[in-house]
């Protein structure tokens, strides 16, 4: 398909982009990597009159980390994050970045766009919910900091206000002894996951001190599986506790019956991935180097 005609503007700075978006009004959209937006335009979803390209605004793609925490600019591409030292330091980040689509999409698509698209199948909102990240915005009304958890309110609906842009995300550096894993089950590289699960775990000996679990493609938005976390916190990780956590995750999920599979099937995959995620995180907590990748079927 070809998109309907639209006007193209290139913003030189974040301020300029906000101004342009506000002036152009309802029909204007920010364009980052275009890997969601251009697909929508080609399918002629919604009426878009103007695109404001924010992709070349300097300085918005930095990835920095220090003792206090990690900050990733909104325009950092999936590929750039996958290749960054951060992906080695925090393997859960590498798991996620490398598992998104294929090379072409990873080279263009951005972390900011992934959040802003409000797509329940996008991976970054799931990962960032797992890491309890915040996102930072700038808009006509000034700057805001919001938790990623809850930022997407409904299918393709986010808390962003008109003209407001995501400038970056940040999260605290996980404490020592804490590790995570991000696992997905998907049909092939250029397909969105059928289900994905993020787990960040803190262990004390064999006991779970703290844990965060988030589910992707398992409902209309990212699902923060608090009940599953409750099954683990303060407990020793045994097959039985893992199974209870997996069941609780299923109970918290609300997958749809679609071409990727019926609900019961997806529930069975949630169970597997929750277990896989916890087990991998646990091994990483113990200092093991564990390569995980999404499973393709």
């Amino acid at each position: 398909m070809y998109p309907a005609p639209f006007r193209y503007h290139r913003a030189a700075s974040i301020e300029a982009a906000i101004r342009q978006l506000s002036e152009l009004g309802e029909g204007a959209r920010a364009l980052a990597g275009g890997q969601s937006l251009l697909v929508w335009l080609k399918m002629r979803f919604g009426e878009v009159s103007d695109l404001v390209d924010i992709g070349r605004i300097p300085g918005l793609d930095a990835i920095t980390q220090d003792a206090a925490g990690v900050r990733i600019g909104a325009l950092a591409t999936h590929a750039r994050i996958a290749r960054s030292p951060l992906a080695k330091l925090l393997p859960i980040v590498g798991d996620c970045a490398n598992g998104i689509a294929d090379n072409q999409v990873r080279s263009r698509g951005t972390i900011g766009g992934s959040l802003a698209s409000g797509d329940p199948s996008c991976d970054w909102p799931v990962l960032l919910t797992t890491l309890d990240a915040n996102l930072h915005t700038q808009g006509p009304g000034g700057a805001r900091d919001l938790p990623v958890d809850g930022f997407v309110e409904d299918l393709y609906v986010t808390k962003l206000k008109p003209g407001e842009l995501i400038t970056g995300i940040s999260f605290a550096m996980p404490v020592k002894g804490s590790a995570g894993a991000y696992v997905g089950f998907k049909r092939c590289a250029p397909a969105y996951p059928t289900i994905s699960v993020g787990v960040q775990l803190s262990l004390k000996g064999e006991q779970c001190e703290d844990v965060r679990i988030a589910l992707g493609s398992a409902g209309l938005t990212t699902i923060h599986a608090r009940a599953a976390e409750a099954e683990l916190k303060g407990k020793t990780l045994t097959p039985a506790t893992l199974a209870r956590a997996a069941d609780a995750a299923v109970a918290a999920s609300d997958p749809v019956d679609d071409q990727r599979g019926p609900i019961a099937f997806k529930q069975s995959i949630i169970k597997v991935l929750v277990r896989r995620g916890i087990e991998t995180a646990k091994r990483r907590c113990h200092g093991e180097t564990v390569e995980v990748s999404h499973e393709y079927y």
């Binding site: 049909r187 092939c188 590289a189 250029p190 397909a191 969105y192 071409q259 990727r260 393709y296």
Partner: peptide, 12 residues
């Protein structure tokens, strides 16, 4: 779409 139909590629 190819995302849904998923034709086999060299990866599979």
């Amino acid at each position: 779409t190819f995302s849904d139909y998923c034709p086999i590629t060299s990866l599979n």
